[in-house]
Amino acid sequence: MNRLFRRGRAPLIAATLLLGGGLAHATGDVQRGADVFATECAECHSVKAGHDKKGPSLFAVLGRKAASNPDFAYSDAMRQSGLTWTEDRLTAYIGAPRKTVPGGKMKYDGLSDAAQLTDLLAFLAAQH
């Protein structure tokens, strides 16, 4: 179970997920999402196409297959995960990376604040 659900935010997340892709963006704030990205992710990820840091570029990550950047050295776990980065897969991964992809090499504990996650997803969805 992911931390979001443990914290009793399940209804909010479920509602976000049920509303589906397009509508979910509308609920998040892209600008606030950019700030969340700067605080939580930017030391390891860029949203510029082709710019890999410790982690792979997250340009146009929404909808792409996991581990599909040929220039990046992914963990075996990520390569074999078979995931596609839909909104709910991304939400699960960012919320609890080690549980969603056990053995993966993203050293990040997870983002537990549901509002921040929604904003972050809106920001990621806008990078294409």
Binding site: E43, C44, D52, K53, K54, K107
Partner: peptide
Amino acid sequence: TGQDCVACHVGGFGPQLTPYGVK
């Protein structure tokens, strides 16, 4: 590492370390 100086250093120049630089 493929990282920018700012990942490890406050103000983008050594030696003051960020948490990432400490690790």
